[in-house]
Design a protein around this nucleic acid. Structure first.
Lengths: 222, 222
DNA sequence: TAATTATCAGTATTAAAATATCGATAACAA
DNA sequence: TTGTTATCGATATTTTAATACTGATAATTA
C-alpha cells in the first residue's frame, strides 16, 4: 500500500500520542506561548526528549529552530490535520443499552470530528424514542439507512453475541470503519477497518498493577 | 524490576490480546470443544499461527500436544488468572457527567472483576442522588472516602481541566491505579499506574482510514 | 508396525519502535 | 565579536514485538 500524499509517514504509536500533544499544545497556546521545545514537552509527559522531537518532525510541515523549539500554532495545525479533526465524520451507533446510551449522551466526540447521527436497537420499547435528539430505529433498518444517509462509521455497543451480525449489516450498508466496543473479534472484508476499544484489557492492566503492588509490598522475594 | 512469581513474563501486546482469546475460548468451551489448536485460533482472529502459539505458551501452565492443540479449559483458567478476573477490584468514579453516568450505568465491568462502589461530582444538583444504587458524593470527600473504603482504583471522567486535581485527590486517598478517560496527561508518583483510555486516538484512526479509502478511490497516484 | 501428518517447542531472523550519539546552528552572554 | 549553550536534525544502536525456520512428537493411516 503506497503512501498517501497528504498523510505523512508516521508510526502507529506516534499517531496515538498526537491527541495528547494536541491537548497540551492548545493549553500552551491559550497561555500565550508561541514556541515550545521538545525537552519541555517531554518533561511534561515523561516521554524522552528524542521521542518528542521525532514525533514532531514526523508531522510538522515546518522545522524546529535550535535554542527555541517549534512553533506552537504550526504544530497544532499539523496535528489537527493528521488527526482529521477538520473533516467531520458522521456515524451511527448500534446498541442503545447502557453503554450505547452513554456514548449517545456524551457530547465530547464532536470536538474530535465525530457526529453520531442516529442509533439502532432491537428493543421494541426504545425504538422510536430519542436520546439527545437522536432517533432510535429498529436494527432491521441498519443497512438501508446507512446507505441512504451515506454514513461511513459504525459504532457497535451491543452484547458480544450480536456484534458480528450487526457488523455485517453495517458493512452491507456501506460502512467502512467500525468502532467496536463489544468484547469479540469481528470478521470483516479486507478494506474495512475495525477499531477495537479494548476496555477489558485496560481493566486487566489496572488489576495486574494492583496485584504487583500488593505483592511487592507484602512478600519480598521467591 | 523483578519478575513476580505468579505473573509469567508476557509482552504488553500479548497481554492485551488475552481478553479476545478468552472470549473465543469460552465460546468454544460452551460448544463442547476440549482442545483447540493454534492454527484454528489464528484463523479466527486473522493472527499468525506462530503468534497465537507464542501467546498461549507464554501464559499456559500446561503444554500443547502435537496434532491436537491446547486444552481449552486449562487455557481459560490460565488467562483468567493472568487477567485477574478472579479477584474483584473495587473502584470509585469521579465525574458523573454524561460519560461517567454511562459507565456507572454500564453493567459489563463486573464480568471483568471491576466493581464501582461510589461516584463523586462537584455538581450540587446530583450530589446526594444515586445512579444504579451508587451514591454520588461531593468531590471534596474523595481522599477521605477512598481511604476509609480502602479503594485502590479510581476512574476519571471529568473534563480535562479538572482531571489533574481529581487525580491528586485520588492518589492522596490511597488509590494506586487510575483509569483515565480525560484527554489529558496526568502526573502521578512513580508507583501509581495511569491507564489512559485514548478514545480520541481511536476516532482519529477511524477518520484516517476513511480518508485513505476515499483518496485511494478517487485519485490514483502522486 | 512403519509412514504420514498436523501440530508443537525452541531458536533465529526480521520489522517496528524507542533511545542514544553526534555534528550543526540559532540565540544569547561575555 | 567570539564563545557558550540549548536545541535541532540525521544517523546509529538497542529494545521489543512479530514472524520464520527447524527438528521433535503424538495421533492417524497404510
Amino acid at each position: 500500500m503506497e503512501q498517501q500524499n497528504n498523510i505523512p509517514s508516521i508510526s502507529l504509536q506516534a499517531f496515538k500520542r498526537m491527541p495528547y500533544y494536541l491537548q497540551y499544545l492548545k493549553k500552551l497556546h491559550k497561555e500565550g506561548a508561541e514556541v515550545v521545545s521538545a525537552p519541555s514537552v517531554a518533561a511534561y509527559f515523561n516521554f524522552s526528549e528524542i521521542q518528542v522531537r521525532k514525533d514532531f518532525s514526523a508531522i510538522s510541515s515546518s522545522q524546529g529552530k535550535p535554542k527555541h523549539g517549534f512553533e506552537v500554532d504550526m504544530l497544532i495545525d499539523d496535528i489537527e490535520n493528521i488527526l482529521g479533526y477538520r473533516n467531520s465524520n458522521e456515524a451511527v451507533l448500534v446498541g442503545a443499552g447502557s453503554l450505547g446510551r452513554a456514548l449517545l449522551l456524551y457530547s465530547g466526540f464532536e470536538a474530535y470530528g465525530l457526529k453520531i447521527m442516529t442509533a439502532f436497537d432491537t428493543n421494541e420499547e426504545i425504538i422510536g424514542t430519542k436520546i439527545k435528539g437522536k432517533s432510535i430505529f429498529s436494527a432491521e433498518k441498519i443497512s438501508d439507512l446507512c446507505r441512504r444517509m451515506k454514513v461511513h462509521i459504525g459504532i457497535i455497543t451491543v452484547p458480544a453475541e450480536q456484534a458480528q451480525v450487526v457488523c455485517d449489516q453495517l458493512v452491507a450498508g456501506g460502512v467502512m470503519a467500525i468502532w467496536n466496543f463489544a468484547q469479540i473479534h469481528l470478521s470483516v472484508p479486507q478494506n474495512i477497518l475495525v477499531q477495537n476499544e479494548n476496555m477489558a484489557a485496560s481493566l486487566a492492566l489496572l488489576s495486574k498493577h494492583l496485584r504487583e503492588q500488593i505483592h511487592s509490598g507484602t512478600e519480598e522475594a521467591l
